[in-house]
Amino acid sequence: MLEVLKRDVCEIAKRAQRDGLCKHKSGNFSARDKETGYVVITPTGMDREVLTPRDMIVMDMNANVIENLSGLKPTSESLMHLKIYETRPDALAIAHTHSMYATSFAVLRKPIPAIVYEVANLGLTKARVPVAEYGRPGTPALADSVIEPCKEAECFLMEKHGVVAFDSNNVYEAYLKASYVEELAQLYFNALTINSGKEPEFFAQEELQKWEYPKEIKFLK
């Protein structure tokens, strides 16, 4: 069932570990099928080195496990994933990482401002990566904490926890967004350090919304 989504989610989970965005079995990933509404999600407590597509779990939007061929449990943060899909029907994939710099700002409950123009691709509405209030991992409170930030942006921090990014296409794009949040966090940290703690200038949301593909580029065929 949903073999393509299983393969994609498994591959991204492995890549996140290789890239260092998820260490020590941390983080989780999912993708939602347009036709059935079912969600393919990573299992809890698995070493990514031995993870296979067969280990992916299929759930419905009511948190019922539809298929778990390896007998594994879905991630304990499944409720958070389902809440995002419920709140943002356009979301088809979610990446939740525990990357170092971004999580450092999450510990401080500090949003990351739009200091470089590339954040125009992160689905921000207030020129920042916002922070969801703290909720204990695995609880309905954690799931509820993501409602407002995921309305505001397609990427956000979770207080004292990590990064969440979602996308309306696939889990590869969701992961790219999470990766870029980590790069943005590093840039922000460097700017603060170089500037002796003084906040750098950042883009206004109106400016971010002005981006468009150059009209001067013409296709002759």
Rank of each mutant, 00 (worst) to 15 (best):
L82M: 14
A132S: 14
P111F: 11
G123H: 10
G138S: 00
Y85S: 05
V146F: 12
E159H: 14
S99Y: 10
G71R: 10
L82N: 09
A153N: 03
R136D: 01
K126Y: 12
T75H: 04
S76Q: 04
A106Q: 01
S145E: 03
K160L: 13
L124C: 09
C150P: 02
C150A: 02
M80N: 03
E159A: 15
E148S: 09
L92P: 04
A114G: 10
I94F: 13
L157I: 09
M80W: 07
K126N: 14
H96L: 06
T87I: 03
A120P: 00
P74V: 08
L92E: 13
Y117W: 06
Y85N: 00
I66K: 15
M100G: 02
A102D: 04
H98D: 07
L108M: 15
D144A: 15
A102H: 11
E77F: 08
P149G: 03
D90S: 12
T139W: 07
Y101M: 13
I115K: 02
R109A: 15
R109M: 08
H81W: 01
P113I: 03
V116T: 15
P113R: 07
D144P: 02
T139Q: 10
A102F: 10
P89Q: 07
K110L: 12
Y85H: 01
H81P: 05
Y85V: 01
C155P: 05
A93G: 09
I94A: 06
K73L: 14
S104F: 12
A132Q: 00
P113E: 07
P149V: 09
V119Y: 04
P130R: 09
E133K: 12
T87P: 05
E77Y: 09
F156C: 07
S78V: 11
A106M: 06
V119A: 10
V129T: 07
T103P: 03
A102L: 07
L69P: 00
A93M: 03
A153H: 05
L82R: 02
T75R: 00
C155G: 06
I115D: 08
K151M: 13
C155R: 06
E133Y: 12
A132G: 00
V131T: 03
M158D: 04
P74D: 11
D144G: 11
P113S: 12
N68W: 05
T125V: 04
A143M: 00
Y101F: 15
C155H: 03
C150M: 05
A132I: 00
S99N: 07
A132Y: 01
P111Y: 05
A132L: 03
A127V: 08
P140T: 00
A141K: 14
L79H: 08
P130H: 13
I115V: 12
P130E: 05
L122G: 03
L79K: 13
A93P: 13
A95S: 15
G135D: 01
C155E: 03
G138E: 00
A132D: 00
I84C: 10
E159Q: 15
S76Y: 00
N68M: 05
I66Q: 08
A143R: 05
A93V: 07
S145V: 03
T125K: 14
A120H: 14
H96R: 08
E86V: 05
P111W: 06
S104P: 00
E148K: 13
S145M: 03
